[in-house]
Amino acid sequence: MLEYIRHWLEKRRGLKDGNWDNLPSPKTVGDQLLSEIRLIVLDLETTGLNPGQDEVIAIGAVAITGGVIHLDDQFDLILRRPDLDISETVLIHGIGPEALTQGHETEDALLYLLDWMNGDPVLAYHSAFDQKFLEKTLKQQLGYVRSHVWIDVADLLPAFFPNAQTGGKGLDHWADFFGLEVSERHHAAADALATAELTLVALNRAGKDGVKTLKALSDKLRYHRQLQNMKRF
């Protein structure tokens, strides 16, 4: 991966001087067909839960194109943040200082990530968390402020499987419900793959329910959220 980013940077040297026009623009919600569209499924590991104080340690992401996960189209990198106090998350994520120092220059990695994402919609489990952290990091490190379309897989699943008895709302609950084996839980890339697998299950159902476009999907999720809010009161 590092080697790859180095090559990529050499080709696109102009980027380092703050020339964001060369980066792909984030796409908007429209009539893109779900059966064709490319989606990014992402998971972050952070030093803690507070976006105001904590930092991103690792980024794992896979791409779904045409309803299929392509394993030659993925992103798996531990950021180089030696200045951070990570004792708190080491317990959860198992990433120690040595693993971190092998990581890459944060700016290079983030530039590459943006280019790789290609402006495509981003999915994550409890996406608000990942969105806040990623947007903060992009702003701090690169001064990048454009926003992508984000979709929360934690909303997507109950919207299409309203009667599933998962016993909880977490990624683990849904992974267990569908019998997934997560290779290494709390590893960004492994969690991203598990989230992407759940996304495939939801997209399969969406196709059968007549939800064909990104817009229809987005509408369905909004409707589902409203329904949930109404039930709450």
Binding site: L193, N204, K208
Partner: peptide, 14 residues
Amino acid sequence: FAEHATLRFFADGD
């Protein structure tokens, strides 16, 4: 194999 693989999902009966 792993680097060139795709992962596909099929629901029951697909």
